[in-house]
Amino acid sequence: MVDITLLGTGGGMPTPYRFLSSLLINFKGRKILVDCGEGTQVSMKMAGTGFKAIDYILITHCHGDHIFGLPGLLQTIGNSGREEKITIIGPSGIREVMDGLMVTCKYLPYEIEIIENPTHSISIFDDDLIISTMEADHTAPCLGYSFYFKRSAKFDIKKAESNGVPKMLWNKLQKSEESIEHEGIVYTRDMVLGRGREGLKISLLTDSRPLDSMIDFYKDSDMLFCEGTYGDNGDIDKAVKNKHMTFAEAAAFAKNADCKKLCLTHFSVAMMEPKDYIENATSVFENTIIGEDRMEFSLKFPEEND
């Protein structure tokens, strides 16, 4: 199971009714934070998510509404007693921006690793999660993210017994990619595992125009968190000029990418009530919801839904 907390759904500037862009992923007790706008710490405190277990911080782009909450958060994590390394991933320019922000928090008790504009997917958490990136279309270098949570094959007791695998090796073979030699016989994990199982794909796209070239990257997402800066279809000119999307455009993108569910976020300050425009999205892609600060999701692997 993957737990997600949508910490902030606003764009541009924080308001009394919406914090800025931030999303927290919790998988097997470890956490990944995507973007860290002003107010992220407050929203985390309100949601009771904790700070110490954040291992990765992913930044979509270096506009202030996505990154200005980071120095304070890093200091709070340090004050929580964390000593393990934190990895920050971001687009071109993230290293220079972090050098500037770190002037305000020089004395952290843990190491910070920076990965700038990765060109290959990154496997983390014992290879159970693959993070992929692609270049988005915004007014600054910007990355879209995809998270693929792998699901290991199920243990097959009949297969293990028919292959004569000693019971003492069953658990070890399940958890290890390496073969095991025992009493002159080599045993491999495929001797105890059944068919492979489908994983879970969660994706995020903000801020960006909806380009056709991005569709394959987001294809078949179980859930897509996508910007919907403008709810009104009449704001299309603003969306094009500022490199954002309308609700209808985000919905069309999700539909074309065969996503299972769409959650809209990153709402303009001028849009007081995004739900007033929900039909502009659902008329295009029915399975669309409006994101709200501290909205929580628990996504199950396909087999867990059976």
Rank of each mutant, 00 (worst) to 15 (best):
D127S: 12
S179T: 13
M102K: 11
H138E: 08
S283D: 15
K243R: 12
L193V: 07
D156V: 00
E303Q: 06
L6Y: 12
G199R: 08
T206L: 04
A252W: 07
A250L: 03
D128S: 15
P118I: 00
P210V: 09
K300C: 07
L299R: 08
E113I: 06
M102R: 12
L143P: 09
L264G: 09
S132F: 03
D216Y: 01
F51T: 08
M168N: 11
G231P: 06
A153P: 09
T246D: 08
G93A: 01
A160W: 10
A252N: 12
K260T: 13
H244P: 00
T104F: 02
S221P: 12
I86H: 02
G228C: 10
H244W: 06
D128A: 13
Q174H: 02
Y56V: 08
A136K: 05
N79A: 01
K300W: 03
D207E: 05
K31P: 06
S176L: 10
D126G: 03
N287K: 11
I131S: 07
G12M: 11
S146D: 10
D207G: 00
A140H: 14
I88S: 01
L262D: 14
K255A: 02
V103T: 12
Y230T: 13
E84T: 14
L211K: 10
E286Y: 09
M271S: 07
G164Q: 11
V103L: 12
M214G: 14
G48Y: 04
S22L: 03
H63R: 11
T87F: 04
K85T: 13
S43G: 09
I94L: 05
G291F: 00
S121D: 15
V269E: 13
R82H: 11
M98L: 15
D35W: 00
Y277H: 14
H61W: 05
A251V: 04
A254V: 03
Q174C: 13
H63M: 01
I236E: 14
F217I: 09
V284E: 10
Y56G: 09
F253M: 10
E273N: 15
E279G: 01
N287Q: 09
D235C: 04
D258G: 00
K275F: 02
R30Y: 07
I215T: 10
L7V: 11
F147I: 01
L143G: 06
I114D: 03
R18F: 05
R189I: 07
D207I: 01
G164T: 12
L74N: 05
L129Q: 12
F68N: 15
Y110S: 13
N280M: 00
K150H: 08
R30E: 15
K167V: 12
D212Y: 01
K243Y: 03
T40I: 04
Y17D: 14
L6T: 11
E113C: 08
S176W: 06
S121G: 15
K219S: 11
G29I: 11
L58E: 10
E303N: 05
S92E: 14
K175G: 01
H61S: 12
I114Y: 08
F27I: 00
E116L: 06
I54L: 09
P109E: 02
Y110H: 15
G69K: 02
I290D: 09
E183K: 15
G39Y: 02
K261D: 00
R195F: 03
E249M: 11
E296S: 08
G196I: 03
T87A: 02
P210R: 06
V269R: 15
M191K: 09
P166M: 00
G11S: 13
G90E: 02
N242I: 01
D127N: 14
F217K: 10
A254W: 01
Y56E: 09
L264K: 07
